[in-house]
Amino acid sequence: MKNSLIIIIIFFTGIFLGMQQSIFLVFSRVDMILYSLYGLLFLVGIDIGSNPSAWLTLKTLNVRIVLVPLSIAAGSILGAGVIAPLFANFTAQDALAVGAGFGYYSLSSIIITQIKGDALGVIALLANLSREVLTLLLAPLLARIFGKLAPIAAAGATYIDTTLPVIVRASGKDYAIIAFFSGIVLTILVPLVVPLILSF
């Protein structure tokens, strides 16, 4: 929760700096954002590769577990697509791409900014950031109403550190491995699926 607040504050600080039309606009140059994206991907890779439970879950892999992230991914993309007709400036393609962020706001918004520009990038950032905040707030409620998989579904790929503790508390320790596996698969899917959707 604290982390989400910090992100929101930093984002608005950036908006304020950008509005000054000052020297800071140098940082908004596209290649600057692109290089930091590569850096972030590299670091995310290190995080996944060094985590013993990541390799452990690969060993205990079965079809049932694979279905979890796949259904979450499909639901997230299609659920966003259903929203598209509500907004005049929202094409189905744009909405599907935002939905394919799976809550991973930093990665998805940068990729979308790269391909589609600032406006859709902002939507991707705010939509996926609010997914994280909503998950943190609603996890216990979702688990009670919709079952133990629900907090994992809501979390999507939201940064594993922030939502995993909340999920484990809401769904129980048995579901930690599933949550972790689902989070990793969805994290890897974001940089692959978002450009794919926007390439059509």
């Binding site: 992100i7 930093i10 984002f11 608005f12 600080t13 950036g14 908006i15 304020f16 700096l17 950008g18 509005m19 000054q20 800071f24 606009l25 940082f27 908004s28 600057m32 954002i33 930091s36 994206l37 972030l40 930093s106 918004s109 940068i110 900014t113 600032d118 990038g121 902002v122 950032l125």
Partner: peptide
């Protein structure tokens, strides 16, 4: 990254 995005948006 979020700061850069904010600047770009602002």
């Amino acid at each position: 990254l979020v700061l850069f995005l904010g600047i770009s948006v602002g």
